[in-house]
Design a binder for these strands. Structure first.
Lengths: 335, 335
DNA sequence: AAACGTGGGGAAAACGTTTTCTTGACGCCA
DNA sequence: TGGCGTCAAGAAAACGTTTTCCCCACGTTT
């Protein structure tokens, strides 16, 4: 139990072998369940390992096997609302395979990204996940990498790469269908900047869903920014142009929150007169809104989990190139 | 340039040596600037390495040196508002030392934490950073670890450990002083649950600062929860009990945002009649408030950076046990 | 001219595992 | 009784570096 006072050397498998009175190789086999050994011998080795608190060096093991059981996660926004749940899902998925992840924050800087990539390859990671903060497609990491790569949230613009994305159009459809189901008929759309693929996709999805239900959107989609300020402003403007609007689908929870405030302060009764639905399920925003926001959860954690699973499969030699879509789900609150 | 079509083996230093016509050891010395070699030889080896795209295997290097140039970050809330900037700072600090971090999310579960710890030690990390999501002291990771540990944000309750914390009382002081400087005299405090050390410390700091300025707090500190709903409710109640209040220091931006809404809707003119200051500088909250929130930034990224620096120093044999405090700074907006 | 120092570079050990190959003992069958 | 198959375990190679030790050739000094 007690450590020798002097140099505290790492206890290696050689120490275990010596204590159990067997050779080095035998100890290895005993601990890994390989080879043919007497059960009594195995037990003796295991006991010795326990007594010494032996933990095998992953480094030595990696050197031999060429596998490190590590992956790299390169994220463009560590701060982000989006990459965090994705990372959480990834970690969850990797954990079952006894893998562990290196975290690299590229901060949207290609130079930092290249630097991180080099570091990861030097460390011989078994695979890499690239998590973006916007849904817009991004250029691939590099050509001819020696390890598999999975793009999460922000897909690669090479369709041969493996990407996992959220179902933006489906999310818009869920939101619109909820509004219609709750009796809304004159539905407007207030969202973020048109330069963002997410805003465009959600607008298109909403238009499609409305059309299929035989409805027309109340006015054109209102593109602006992902801010509450824009939501408030747009809501007031909307009410002036379309006083009879009874539903607003917003491109994000932040916008939706601004919209609820804008509508309420312009005299609309929420949720009776106008229903509002957002996207993101960002709880600190959605729950504090008045009324608390009904919203679509994009399932980012599942997305990350899926990305991890796909990467593990690719590492095991079963790559699944192409774009994989993860569905979201509606979270009904009071708006 | 072009790869041989067959097995794509990793290019090792042996390949470089062969190409440069020198021995393995010489190649190593040339690339690492060790030993005494002719400059011409060094250049030849470097050229060969470049042509082959040689990248040394960190794994092999680690095996020999016993150092891996990796650290583990164990965080109790990957989702979190708090650990993210901390991690960002840590990564920043480590990057200059060519180190890289493993990310482990313990989700506040001691079992997961122990599991992650084991994984990290197996991988022979050079050090560990533990990042919490609350400022309350936490039990140390484990006794007698073979690597240095630095606690960030949530300190260890063993004062012999190395912890880095934010200056909660100082932050409260900054907020109160700002209110006083802008002419407020009847200042109240609305904050989160008394069970949180952060709420208690900030309240104590505010009381101290007011006392030093010869003022008394308007009423007792109002403890509640870290929500907007509580902020709104408390603001209305405050105005009933102390109609002449002209400043509110809030324990967080979320609470402060609720307070601004509550005050405004109770008829107070902001920021003329009542000044409000928060803590956190959570931009999405603070900037969307009306008026945009003046708040104290706790300097979490610097905190993380500091933690990284301290860990690197400890790894280099210069530990600095004890509690290290990082100062925040005021961010003046319009409230 | 012999001894010595030094610059330049090679050979081999070391790190801690896993895995393959080999060896020895024993039992069974002819 | 001899040969063969099998079970158990040891010996050694392998992974890709770094580093120590050693050697050789050359120039300098006495």
């Amino acid at each position: 139990m007690s450590q020798q006072a002097g140099t505290r050397r790492r206890v290696g498998i050689a120490d275990v072998a010596a204590r159990a009175g067997v050779s080095l190789g035998t100890a290895s086999k005993a601990l890994n369940g390989r080879g043919t050994l007497r059960e009594e011998t195995r037990a003796r080795v295991r006991a010795a390992a326990d007594e010494l608190g032996f933990a095998p060096s992953t480094v030595a093991r990696s050197l031999l096997s060429g596998r490190t059981f590590t992956v790299g996660i390169i994220t463009t926004d560590s701060y982000g609302r989006f990459s965090i749940p994705v990372m959480r899902g990834v970690e969850d998925s990797l954990g079952v395979g006894e893998m562990i992840a290196f975290l690299c924050d590229s901060r949207d800087d290609p130079i930092r990204e290249a630097h991180h990539l080099r570091k990861l390859l030097e460390r011989q990671v078994d695979g890499i996940i690239v998590a973006g903060r916007r849904t817009d497609p991004r250029p691939p990491l590099s050509e001819n990498l020696p390890v598999p790569v999975v793009y999460a949230f922000a897909p690669s613009n090479d369709p041969e790469d493996c990407s996992v994305v959220s179902d933006e159009r489906g999310a818009a459809r869920l939101a619109v269908e909820h509004l219609v189901k709750t009796g809304r008929r004159r539905i407007a759309h207030i969202t973020g900047p048109q330069s963002h693929a997410a805003a465009r996709e959600r607008a298109a999805g909403a238009a499609d869903a409305l059309a299929e239900l035989g409805l027309a959107m109340a006015g054109e989609p209102m593109f602006g920014s992902w801010t509450e300020t824009w939501g408030r402003f747009a809501a007031a403007q909307l009410l002036r142009g379309h006083p009879d609007v009874d539903g607003v689908f917003c491109g994000s929870d932040v916008v939706a929150r601004g919209v609820t405030d804008g509508l309420r302060e312009a005299g609309a009764a929420l949720p009776m007169q106008v229903g509002v639905v957002g996207i993101d399920n960002w709880e600190v925003i959605a729950e504090a809104a008045r009324p608390p926001l009904t919203t679509v959860d994009l399932g980012l954690e599942q997305l990350g989990h899926r990305a991890g699973d796909l990467l593990l499969a690719a590492i095991d030699g079963h790559p699944a190139p192409g774009v994989h879509v993860v569905e979201g789900h509606l979270v009904v609150r009071e708006s």
